[in-house]
Computed example of a mutant assay.
Amino acid sequence: MKKQNKIKWFKPLSALIFVLGVGATVLVFSSEPENVEKEIKEEVVAKKMPAVKRELSEQMNILDSLNTLKEAYDVAILEKNTLSRELELERKNVENLMQLIKVSQNPTAAQIKIYRNQLLDLKNSLETRMQEIKKLKFQNKNLLTEIESQNVVMYQQRAENDTLVSKQKKLESSLKDASKLSLSNFKVIALREKNSGKELETTKSKSTDKLKISFTINGNAVAKTGKRVYYVQVLDQKNTVLGDDKLIEFGNNKALVYSFIVTADFQGKSLNAYGILNADENNFKKGTYFVNYFDKQEIVGSTSITLE
């Protein structure tokens, strides 16, 4: 009797185990297409992500390069040579460009191209300065060697030694004077115009009718005189170029989008120059505006203004 009862329970139990096994098998195989589809979607997203983040990655790479460039300027300035002032101005340009890039959000490929070109210009400028310093050191070394040789051979001829010292000073002066025409005193102020026509400085965005952007062309007795053209680029909080928003190409795949042009008649002496950016139909918004100054495709200065 007990044996019959065991047989009765064994058959239903075997059937139940068989049904559960078939169900598990169906579940495993039915879930495989979903897993495959999920894996395909993840692969597609993974392929798209680098394209989406490429500009941000390039932005960080440019910032890293600018930081390295700034450190190189720091080292060069510590040598305290006759070009230290020019090096300090160019280091400031590097710092301003770094600040501009840091506040830029979701840069476009065109903006990345502009940053890269500006980085290349700054690198080329440093390389040019370093070559000038190297040349100056070499010439100074040769002059000192010549002076020492003359002192040994003709100790009594002090007048000739004085002449050599004078040559050294004239050489340093000539190298400095022959350097590229430089700009300084970069400024931007917001103005509101009264009904009388009088202009008053303001810090309020809603009161701002125009931005006056000025700079100084440093005097240089040996620089070529005549008409000088400089390009001014004004960027708003969205990194949009305000004003004319025109593109100019300089060759060698170099181009610049500028807000307006400033021309000046340089005659060897220091000269103040400025340009005006008028408010458009949208007026000036609250926030920080960045201003870049260009001599052709080369950035020569930067400044900014914050409107409340």
Rank of each mutant, 00 (worst) to 15 (best):
K6R: 15
F215M: 12
D177R: 09
F138E: 12
K135F: 03
N81P: 10
K194Q: 05
S84D: 10
L181Q: 02
L56F: 03
V165N: 02
L126Y: 14
N93M: 01
G23F: 14
A46G: 12
E127Q: 13
K269H: 06
N161Y: 09
S196V: 05
Y258A: 01
N278L: 05
N252C: 01
D280A: 07
E39K: 07
E88S: 05
I112T: 02
S196C: 05
M60D: 14
V222M: 06
A221L: 06
A264T: 04
K80V: 13
A46P: 02
T163P: 00
D121N: 13
T263G: 00
E42F: 06
K135P: 02
L181M: 04
G197C: 07
K92Y: 01
L120N: 15
L122M: 08
S207M: 12
G287V: 07
V28K: 13
N151P: 08
L256W: 13
N81A: 00
S57Q: 11
S65K: 01
G243F: 10
G251W: 14
E199P: 00
N195Q: 09
G287L: 07
L120W: 15
M1P: 00
A15I: 15
K170M: 14
V94A: 13
K286W: 01
Q111P: 00
Y293W: 12
A190V: 01
R85G: 02
A51Q: 15
E42T: 09
P107V: 06
V94Q: 09
K102L: 00
A109T: 13
V52H: 13
V45I: 15
K92C: 00
G23V: 09
T288P: 02
V36E: 11
E37Q: 12
V36H: 09
L69S: 01
V103A: 05
K11V: 15
Q4W: 10
K53L: 15
N151H: 11
P50I: 15
A15M: 14
L83I: 10
N253H: 08
G243T: 10
A264V: 04
N35W: 13
Q4S: 05
I217S: 03
K141I: 08
E199M: 12
P107Q: 00
A15E: 08
D177I: 03
E132P: 06
E86Q: 13
N252T: 04
L16I: 15
N218M: 11
T303L: 04
N106A: 03
E249A: 15
L143C: 11
E34M: 11
F294Q: 04
K180W: 04
N253S: 11
N161P: 05
V45C: 03
Y231H: 06
F18P: 04
P33R: 07
